[in-house]
Write a protein that binds this DNA or RNA. Structure first.
Lengths: 341, 341
DNA sequence: AACCCCAACCCAATCGATTGGGTAAGGGAC
DNA sequence: GTCCCTTACCCAATCGATTGGGTTGGGGTT
């Protein structure tokens, strides 16, 4: 509850100090020291009086002032391709939860996966003096990340990884393998992959995991059966059209590296008179909340999105504290539903 | 591009002033005055030298310091039920665009429509000294808003309106009418409504618009045909089950006040062996990006989500500038697709 | 010659919190 | 009694930008 002094300003340290007849610095030290009095800054009785008054007046420290002095804002920046991508939105919820617990606030910005925008947004965040960044739109080439490192900006990656940088991601290779195992054991031998954008590790790892496992199971999968695509529904539809157009006999199963691409794919299949689940199996990735509620519920590799976001924030905190950090891989699980049962 | 002085700190006004042998205040005035020199603060030549050096050194003003002095942070807070609700995510993109244009940055937080959380998040934002708030989770009872007004916090509503407060919303009553007109003219006479949460104006207005228009067209619609529900897919499924369970003959059309509820509804219909579009027409609301790409494309009342977000931010800016503002209603349009053709 | 004005600057206080370095009073050891 | 150590504080500089109020020197007026 923000309160005001008689003249309408918000309550400051000095106000509290004046009212109690002690020095602002003493008040500061008391309010800083958890519940024990730090470095003998004040007597227990005084500390109690100060805390009591602070509560009563609704004192809330001015972060501008504190940040100015301490050179830390407890602000973090989050950059994602788009927040209207459900996957990133959920991850952001995880970040936000963890940030609140750690006493940080966060800015989010969309880069639309455009390198130019990535730089611009990064600069905007740095101009705001964020303590660190969570990058959710890393491209595998990594030139942007090298710049950040050169500028000594603390950051961690989320969702997509790039070798050599700290990150919190799903074990996407494993996720691809789970999908391959599932389709193979259901008897499919002719499959295609809607692979996503080649600059994203999510797309590359999931596809690689799937293809490698498929081949080690003894399956064949041709070049043309792997179609790169955008990550959204429209992209999935286009990719599915390509798959259906380019071959004389349809695959019996399609693995899409993303639920929304899978949904677009299901739409295309239906347009071709094919029934999902009976004629063609479809497996998506992420198990977003729509997957289970679709008219034909979608099988999907569940990635722990909320956890990934939380982990990213916790990793960043450790980076900011100067601790060493390693990339973290979180485990996916397969959810089989009607689309591939 | 953030640059550093020799000793590793970021560049300050004083650094620039020292290097040019003039006073920091002069530099400040020059950099503040657009491209013309304000109030004769400096000669054109000096102004040019200052701007040139600022560019060269990559000077970027410290917002903490400026905010401390001016008591404005150019920060705004955005509170939404959940950012993983696609509708709110898109609106937030609109806010973010407009905020960037106006020189503001934004925090977003999720309240999950919980009054307790709304207060907590509001307080967190105010503790961060935001200049104003955009409230995307207003409840019709409005007690929280009365508090905000009492505390003299500048704010505007977005997505949901509450009479008496400035807001940027879709004309939801009109949206409901569009849906009613469409279904009526397609010959439907037995309809049901999945109405959403009764505390949200979106739900209430869309439902009222639909029901009132339906009745004025001469239709009948019973109490039990209007089912309140959560806004997500699961909520839509449950509501649809209620509709299908409670009646001896199924409605031939269902209007859901939200696309995700509509998707859940489509799932439930299919589970009952009904084909969407042939046996039962379904119309959603918002025209989110999935609607058109679903296996059975969903008819939906399109609301200008991005525009609503942009407008909300622009309204807030006007409030912050002390200008008078009125609620803004943005026009929806109907997109007819296979689910109700 | 006295006066005023304007351009082009400078000065210093201010915003609110933090922090390294005091200092005064009191108690205990020897 | 002297010395030292705590305890419980106070003091003042500092972070970086902003802003109301100077000051100076030159030119124009009358």
């Amino acid at each position: 509850m923000k309160e005001f002094t008689v003249d309408g300003r918000t309550v400051t340290l000095k106000d509290l100090a004046n009212e109690l007849g002690i020095h602002p610095s003493t008040v500061s030290r008391i309010l800083h020291s958890g519940s024990d009095v730090a470095r003998g800054a004040a007597s227990v009785a005084t500390a109690e009086r100060v805390r009591e008054l602070a509560r009563k007046r609704g004192y809330s420290p001015n972060p501008q002032a504190a940040g100015l002095r301490t050179r830390r804002t407890r602000l973090t920046g989050v950059i994602v391709p788009r927040l209207s991508d459900l996957v990133l939105a959920v991850m952001y919820e995880g970040i936000d939860e963890a940030a609140a617990e750690l006493g940080y606030s966060t800015f989010v910005m969309n880069s639309r996966d455009d390198p130019e925008e990535q730089r611009r947004k990064t600069d905007t965040m740095l101009a705001r003096r964020v303590d660190g960044l969570i990058i959710g739109d890393a491209h595998l080439d990594g030139s942007h990340l090298r710049e950040l490192t050169a500028r000594k900006v603390p950051f961690v990656l989320m969702n997509r990884r790039v070798p050599g940088y700290p990150s919190a991601t799903c074990d996407d290779v494993l996720g691809g393998q789970l999908a391959a195992d599932h389709l193979w054991s259901n008897g499919h031998r002719n499959v295609a992959v809607i692979a996503g954008e080649p600059y994203a590790s999510t797309a590359v790892d999931r596809t690689a995991g799937f293809v490698d496992r498929w081949q080690s199971l003894g399956g064949k999968i041709s070049q043309e059966a792997v179609v790169w695509s955008r990550f959204d529904t429209a992209g999935g539809r286009v990719a599915a059209e390509t798959i259906l157009a380019g071959r004389n006999h349809y695959p019996t199963a399609i693995f899409a590296v993303n639920d929304f691409a899978a949904i677009g794919c299901m739409g295309a299949l239906r347009s071709h008179g094919l029934t999902v689940g009976r004629d063609v199996a479809v497996v998506g990735f992420n198990d977003t909340s729509v997957a289970s509620e679709l008219p034909i519920p979608l099988s999907s590799v569940r990635s722990p999105m909320l956890k990934i976001g939380r982990t990213a924030m916790q990793l960043l905190k450790r980076v900011l504290d100067g601790e060493p950090v390693e990339p973290v891989l979180l485990q996916p699980t397969l959810c089989v539903r009607e689309s591939s049962a």
